[in-house]
Amino acid sequence: MSTFFYGIEDLFVNYLFWPYDTFRAMTNWWTSNSINWIFVIIGAVAFYYWMGQLNIFNKNNEEDKTISSHSYL
């Protein structure tokens, strides 16, 4: 069973996460965290898109806002 877990370790450490080892050698903080900044930008764009869609539905009054809209209320 231990060889199974060593195999998982080998897969992640030596194959899937090897690009992150190059970021450790960089001395500039901004370039070493570029992947994180890309994810933050993608998340911000998705957040603003989602809020825009909610605003469209709110302006069209398509949402049921009555108190009895859910059975548990």
Results as ranks from 00 to 15, higher is better:
F47C: 07
N60C: 12
G52M: 07
V40H: 05
M26C: 06
Y72A: 10
W18G: 00
M26P: 02
N55Y: 09
N33P: 01
N55H: 10
F39V: 13
T66G: 06
M1H: 11
G7W: 04
N58S: 14
L16K: 01
I42V: 10
F39M: 10
I8M: 06
A46R: 06
G43L: 08
I56F: 07
W29S: 04
N36M: 11
E62Y: 14
W37V: 15
R24H: 03
D64C: 07
I35M: 07
I41H: 00
S69C: 14
Y15C: 02
S2H: 06
S71Q: 10
E62D: 11
D10F: 07
T3I: 12
T31A: 06
S71E: 08
G7V: 01
V13N: 03
N55Q: 10
G7M: 01
S32R: 15
Y49K: 10
W30Q: 06
T3F: 07
N55P: 01
I38Q: 04
T31V: 11
I38D: 00
F4R: 04
F5W: 13
V13P: 00
A25P: 00
N33Q: 08
N61S: 12
N60D: 10
H70K: 13
N28E: 03
F57E: 13
K65R: 14
P19S: 01
L11M: 06
H70C: 14
W50Y: 12
Q53E: 09
T22K: 11
V45M: 04
F17I: 12
F23N: 03
Y49W: 14
N28M: 09
T27A: 04
N36F: 08
I8T: 02
Y6W: 12
H70Q: 11
N28W: 04
H70V: 15
D10S: 10
W50A: 13
G7P: 01
K59G: 05
F39N: 05
N33C: 08
Y6I: 12
N14K: 06
S2W: 13
T22R: 10
F17P: 01
F57Y: 15
E63L: 15
L11C: 03
N33W: 03
A46G: 09
Y72V: 15
Y48H: 05
A25H: 03
Q53R: 13
Y20W: 12
N61F: 06
S34E: 02
R24T: 12
D64T: 08
W29L: 12
I67E: 02
I38T: 07
T27V: 09
G52E: 02
I56D: 03
S34Q: 08
F57R: 14
A46N: 05
F4L: 10
I41D: 00
Y49D: 07
T3D: 09
G43F: 07
L73M: 11
L73V: 13
G52D: 02
L73P: 00
N14E: 04
T3K: 09
M26I: 12
W50V: 14
E62F: 13
D64K: 06
P19R: 01
F23D: 03
I56Q: 11
W29R: 10
E63Q: 13
F23L: 12
V40Q: 05
G7T: 02
S68W: 08
D21P: 01
Y49S: 07
N36S: 11
S2T: 12
F39P: 00
W18C: 09
G52I: 02
E62H: 11
A46T: 04
S71V: 15
S71L: 14
F4P: 00
Q53C: 11
P19T: 10
N61L: 13
A44H: 01
